[in-house]
C-alpha cells in the first residue's frame, strides 16, 4: 500500500487528540458527559483512523499488548472492581470515593467506579482491535472466487 506522508501526519494528529479526548471522557465521565464506554468508543474511532491510513500493520503496531490481552485485561479490571468490595464485606460492585486537595490538580474526587470504568474502556478498545484482527486483513488474498 502506498502511503502519503501528509496522510500519516494527519492520522497521527487525529489519533493522538482522539486518544486524549477519550481519556478525558473516561476520567471526567462521572460528572460530565462521557464515561468509559463512550471513551472506549472514541479511542476505537481513533484506531479506525489509523486503519484507514495505514492498514492492518499500522494497527498492530499501535500497542505492545495483543488485542486479546487488552480485552481480557479490561474484563479483569472490571471484575476486580466487582469482586474486591466482597472481600471487604461490602456488596458486589459497591462504590466508594475519596475527596481531597492535591497540588497542581486542585480538588480531586476519586471514585472506585473509575476502576470499573477503565475496564469498560479497555474492553471496548480491545473488542474493536479484535474485530480488526479478525476482519481487518485485505480480503483479496483469500477471495479466490
Amino acid at each position: 500500500m502506498t502511503r502519503s506522508p501528509i496522510m500519516d501526519t494527519i492520522a497521527d494528529l487525529v489519533f493522538h487528540s482522539a486518544i486524549v479526548l477519550s481519556l478525558y471522557f473516561l476520567f471526567a465521565g462521572h460528572n460530565q458527559p462521557g464515561g468509559g464506554f463512550v471513551g472506549g468508543l472514541v479511542a476505537a474511532a481513533a484506531v479506525v483512523v489509523y486503519y484507514v491510513a495505514g492498514g492492518m500493520d499500522e494497527v498492530r503496531d499501535l500497542s505492545r499488548f495483543r488485542p486479546w490481552t487488552i480485552l481480557g485485561g479490561g474484563l479483569v479490571l472490571a471484575s476486580l472492581a466487582a469482586l474486591v468490595p466482597l472481600v471487604a464485606g461490602d456488596a458486589l460492585l459497591q462504590s466508594d470515593y475519596v475527596e481531597g486537595d492535591l497540588p497542581v490538580l486542585g480538588h480531586v474526587k476519586l471514585t472506585s467506579t473509575l476502576l470499573f470504568d477503565s475496564g469498560v474502556y479497555a474492553v471496548v478498545v480491545g473488542l474493536v482491535l479484535m474485530v480488526f484482527e479478525g476482519l481487518g486483513d485485505e480480503p483479496e488474498a483469500e477471495d479466490h472466487t
Binding site: 465521565g29 462521572h30 460528572n31 460530565q32 458527559p33 462521557g34 464515561g35 468509559g36 464506554f37 472490571a78 471484575s79 472492581a81 466487582a82 458486589l92 460492585l93 462504590s95 470515593y97 474526587k109 471514585t111 467506579t113 470499573f116 470504568d117 469498560v120
Partner: peptide, 20 residues
C-alpha cells in the same frame, strides 16, 4: 454515588452489574 453525570452513575454504579 458521588457522580454528577446520572447516566454514567447508572451505568457504572446503580446498574453496574448490567454493565459488567
Amino acid at each position: 454515588a458521588g457522580g454528577g453525570n446520572v447516566v454514567n452513575v447508572v451505568l457504572v454504579d446503580f446498574r453496574g452489574l448490567d454493565t459488567l
